[in-house]
């Protein structure tokens, strides 16, 4: 029997689910749909008034400034996801294979950035990268730099801080998938004289693909919609779509345009991750067929 007798005897499941469904329908689905509606309004300020036009979208895609920011945002998001994969994989893998006692503190460090407020993390990096910050004073006292260098308000700094924020997602998804790969498989490969790299490439990676994809997609979607980090670490010079949307709505109060940009971000982010997933899935199936013969 799949479900217990207990639940059926108390209340209707619909009653139990109602508060959650109402909350998410009313304050997640409705706002997103409302925003979609506003993105089709003509004009540049008011939310009142009606009308339906593609004006905002046409303006977005015909202005080369926006297309370049969109492209830049995607390149940044892709770079952040790739770096997170490269540095997060070894950490997630080792966490999965460590005995519980040694794992404890490492997991806590890995989870910290997820629970700690984003502004605190960004503020910490301002201390590290600032003009009189840790890196500059360390390098000057070591005699490597003669005068302080500008790290803040550069693109690499934004990428670094985004990686630090989001790498925990990659670590945790890799960890959870590697936990399910039995160590016997690696021992078998070693018995067959595979070195660690071959084992890694032929055994671990193919089996860990689902976890890698989950982590990659999550980091990508989060990075392209980031706006606090680009604004505080990147300043006005480093434009990412998220910070542009924030400016458009909170400073210029141009709702239709901001709403359209938010939807471009939302839909293109989803499209991109879906495309990557489909590509890798087809590769895997093709690869599987090759070995299956």
């Amino acid at each position: 029997m799949k479900h217990s007798v207990l639940s059926r005897r108390i209340v209707n499941p619909a009653l139990l689910l109602a508060p959650m469904v109402l909350l998410l329908a009313g304050f997640l689905v409705v706002p997103v749909l409302g925003l979609l509606r506003s993105s089709f309004l003509p004009g540049s300020h008011l939310l009142e008034g009606g009308g339906f036009s593609l004006q905002q979208y046409i303006r977005f895609f015909s202005d080369s400034y926006y297309s370049s920011v969109l492209l830049e945002t995607f390149i940044d998001g892709f770079a952040v996801s790739l770096i997170c994969l490269l540095v997060g994989f070894p950490v997630g893998y080792s966490l999965a294979r460590l005995p519980p006692l040694e794992r404890r503190w490492r997991t806590i460090i890995a989870i910290m950035p997820l629970t700690l407020s984003l502004v605190v993390i960004v503020f910490g990096w301002l201390i590290v990268l600032g003009r009189n910050g840790v890196v500059n004073s360390l390098f000057i006292s070591l005699g490597i730099f003669s005068s302080p260098k500008q790290f803040l308000f550069t693109r690499p700094a934004v990428l670094l801080v985004l990686v630090q924020q989001f790498v925990p997602f990659m670590i945790l998804s890799v960890m959870s998938v590697v936990t399910q790969i039995h160590p016997v498989l690696e021992q078998a490969a070693a018995n067959l004289r595979a070195n660690r790299f071959t084992t890694f490439r032929r055994i671990i990676i193919p089996l860990a693909v689902p976890g890698i994809l989950v982590g990659f997609n999550l980091v990508f979607v989060l990075s392209i919609s980031a706006f606090v980090t680009p604004r505080l670490v990147g300043g006005a010079r480093i434009a990412m779509l998220g910070s542009l949307i924030y400016e458009r709505i909170m400073s210029e109060l141009n709702w239709p345009s901001g709403a359209a940009m938010a939807f471009v971000l939302f839909v293109s982010g989803f499209g991109f991750t879906a495309a990557i997933n489909a590509l890798i899935a087809s590769r895997l199936i093709a690869g599987g067929k090759r070995y299956a013969v």
């Binding site: 997060g88 070894p90 950490v91 630090q164 790299f197």
Partner: peptide, 27 residues
């Protein structure tokens, strides 16, 4: 190859844990 992989793995782990803890510790 085994040694190289073990060494680079250990290096990356050290960098990542430092990077993760650094902002909070400095604040």
């Amino acid at each position: 190859i085994d040694d190289a992989m073990a060494a680079s793995g250990a290096l990356i782990r050290a960098i990542v844990y430092t990077m993760l803890a650094l902002p909070a510790v400095l604040v």
